[in-house]
Computed example of a mutant assay.
Amino acid sequence: MSHKIKFSIKGMTCQDCANKIEKELASLNGIEEASVSFVTAQAIVKYNPEAIEVTAIKKVFTRRGYAVTETRGSVTDAFEYKYKETARVFSVGILLLSSWLIHLLTGIPPVITDSMALAAIMIGGYPIASKAIKALIKRELNVDALVAIAASAAIAIGDYTEAGLVIFILLLGEFLESVTLARTTRAIKGLASLIPDTVKLKRGDLEVDVPSSEIKVGDVVVVRSGEHIAIDGVIVKGDATIDQSLITGESIPVERSSGDDVYSGTINKVGAVEIKATKVGRDTTVARIERMITEAQGRKAPVERTVDRFAKYFVPAILILSAIVFLATGDVRRAITVLIVACPCALVLGTPTAVVAAIGAAARKGILIKGGGGFRGSWQDQRCYL
């Protein structure tokens, strides 16, 4: 019998890292399916527990220096705002802008502006150089290696500002990506806020406040006007008007009475009811919706798989092209220009980021999309079924 497990990963630097992990996982005996996403910083693995253990799966990540933890359907925090990275981006940007303005508007010797550009390079280049060195030690080429080579070449010929701009562009792109993904992550986490921290548990003739996480199947919970329903269940006593627009899409609250089913995350607008729990915790409707959205973000659209295959050859191809330009022209600046133009690598990161952001945006509007494949050809659809 197959099992599915989800991991949260920290330490990946680009989609190529994720592709290499995915390829290694797929080669293991007992792995039936593996999907690794750099954008969501998570891996979803379907495996046969009789053929491979979870510890062996984790070793694929830890051998490469990544921190990996098993998750239980919660949204990863890997792309929450990082104050250190934010400060680094703004510091590099301010130093480069100041250097350019001083050079443009004053007669200060170039050594001052060059020193400011070098300071920007040191602040922004350290994490990039560190990741590039680690990749090269593993005999791998990634975007960080490409940026490091381009920046180093620019420094070697004295173009300090250009080297700083290359680093700044990469850092800015990663920062904007993190902002987009953090917003999407928080929107999905907002689903959890629909579940109250405590509920009124019926015990005989008494009502006892208990944490919603302690409710078990078969318990009877009292829900009054204005309160959120924490569990899936059936009404055993009372009548109420329930707003279940989040679950069913119905814009108008519906009347519910004894014998009717109700769902977690919905709101009791009017009335008081006693609900017998049929599903609790991770089995509730809200928990399953959150889990579906999170897993959907990890599923790759066909266009993403195409981009992933392209990314594998992107960095070596750019290095070869730069070498050809140098041999053909004898101009090192033109060769470096090729490296600089290619550095942002927007094609590699843009597609998965757009897919994740779109799924999150749709979820905020009550639209559930089961994976990036749902976007393929959607622009050709001429009908909408409700």
Rank of each mutant, 00 (worst) to 15 (best):
Pro109Cys: 07
Thr106Ile: 04
Ile137Tyr: 12
Phe90Ile: 05
Ile137His: 13
Asp197His: 09
Ile157Ser: 08
Gly173Ile: 00
Leu176Ala: 05
Ala135Arg: 06
Ile123Ser: 04
Arg186Gly: 01
Leu170Cys: 02
Leu176Val: 11
Ile137Gly: 02
Ser99Lys: 10
Lys134His: 08
Glu177Ile: 00
Gly124Cys: 03
Val143Glu: 10
Ala119His: 08
Ala151Gln: 08
Ile155Thr: 09
Asp114Glu: 11
Gly125Cys: 06
Thr106Ser: 14
Ala163Cys: 03
Ile121Thr: 06
Gly164Thr: 05
Tyr83Pro: 03
Thr71Tyr: 06
Ile123Val: 14
Ala135Ile: 00
Ser178Cys: 03
Ile128Thr: 02
Val92Arg: 06
Asp205Thr: 09
Ile157Gly: 08
Ile102Gly: 06
Ser130His: 13
Arg64Met: 08
Gly173Trp: 01
Thr180His: 01
Ile102Pro: 04
Ala192Asp: 11
Ile128Asn: 01
Glu162Leu: 11
Trp100His: 12
Asp114Arg: 13
Thr180Arg: 00
Ala129His: 13
Tyr160Ala: 00
Tyr83Asn: 09
Tyr81Trp: 05
Leu141Asn: 10
Gly65Trp: 13
Pro196Thr: 12
Ala153Arg: 14
Ile188Lys: 04
Val166Leu: 10
Ala154Thr: 10
Leu206Ile: 04
Ile102Ser: 06
Tyr66Leu: 10
Thr69Glu: 15
Leu97Phe: 09
Ile121Ala: 03
Leu101Pro: 09
Lys202Ile: 11
Ala132Cys: 09
Arg63His: 15
Thr161Gly: 03
Val143Tyr: 07
Thr86Met: 12
Leu181Val: 03
Ile188Asn: 04
Lys134Trp: 02
Ala153Pro: 05
Leu97Arg: 08
Thr106Phe: 12
Thr76Ile: 01
Arg88Tyr: 02
Ile137Lys: 14
Tyr83Ser: 13
Gly125Thr: 07
Ala148Lys: 09
Leu176Glu: 01
Lys189Leu: 01
Leu194His: 10
Gly158Leu: 04
Thr62Gly: 06
Ala119Glu: 10
Arg64Pro: 08
Ile195His: 08
Ile108Asn: 12
Ile121Leu: 05
Ala187Phe: 01
Lys202Leu: 12
Leu170Tyr: 02
Ala135Val: 00
Pro127Ile: 03
Arg139Ser: 13
Glu162Phe: 07
Thr184Ile: 01
Arg64Phe: 03
Leu136Val: 04
Ala67Asn: 14
Ala192His: 09
Thr76Leu: 02
Ser115Gln: 07
His103Thr: 09
Ile195Cys: 06
Glu177Met: 00
Ala156Ser: 14
Leu191Phe: 15
Ile137Ser: 11
Leu165Asn: 11
Lys200Cys: 03
Gly158Glu: 06
Pro109Gly: 11
Leu170Lys: 09
Glu162Cys: 07
Ala145Leu: 03
Ser152Ile: 05
Ile133Thr: 07
